[in-house]
Design a protein around this nucleic acid. Sequence first.
DNA 1: GCCAACCTACGAAGACTTTCGTTGATGTTA
DNA 2: TAACATCAACGAAAGTCTTCGTAGGTTGGC
Lengths: 125, 125
Amino acid sequence: MNKKRPTDGELEILRVLWARGRSTVREVLGELDRDSGYTTVLKLMQIMTEKGLVEREKQGSTHTYWAAASQEATQRHLVRDLLDRAFPGSAQRLVLQALAERPAEPQELAEIRKLLDEQEGGEPA
Amino acid sequence: MNKKRPTDGELEILRVLWARGRSTVREVLGELDRDSGYTTVLKLMQIMTEKGLVEREKQGSTHTYWAAASQEATQRHLVRDLLDRAFPGSAQRLVLQALAERPAEPQELAEIRKLLDEQEGGEPA
DNA sequence: GCCAACCTACGAAGACTTTCGTTGATGTTA
DNA sequence: TAACATCAACGAAAGTCTTCGTAGGTTGGC
């Protein structure tokens, strides 16, 4: 039951875990943008374990970590959270600004259109 | 030059200020969802003044506050920030999840389509 | 067996956020 | 003017996040 969104540091670590899959602390450390010390990353990942954001398994003397929730599920939470906090009313503005910020590929545009069509088709309230 | 995103409490206050326009602390307090005490909201707004998130003007013994940045500009920052932190690569996922979360009105869909068309029209790299 | 390298765990420090009690100033009203 | 309400300013407390030093256990090579 995790209500709160991950912190910035936690999210960076999750991104590495999603990209790499199961990883040790040292492997995560190597991929991080920020240059934190080893014990800093270790501590974060220990806390994330307590929070249930990651899970781990002992192999020899080393722990292997992986993200407890999928990237998609986490993104869904983050989007919902941002909509609630900053985009009262509709999602339209968020969509427009996201697309303006990072123009999408033709193939992506097609997928977005597909979803628009479905919504236009309209489910009754 | 404000790099960091507003905290949750600050964002709530900003939302009230965007909706109401110029407001006193007590007016903001009355509109807030969370039930904070008067001095709590006052303190937050004082800190926001120091940070440059809001501006204020003394009228008699009371201060009138307003948001320093527009809602749109702030939303733009928040979207960019979220894209950077959690949506590596493309904005497509964010768009799809936002629309799934909060289906848009036909008129909004039309506007989104318009932007898609413009992007498809395609600016050459 | 012993040493060096690596790993985990723990705790504490500093920064930030949110909370509110207290104090003193200002304004209103009887 | 005196009493009362309202306001701003200040500081402290509690919680969280990030950082890292230190200590102790494990592993592998020689």
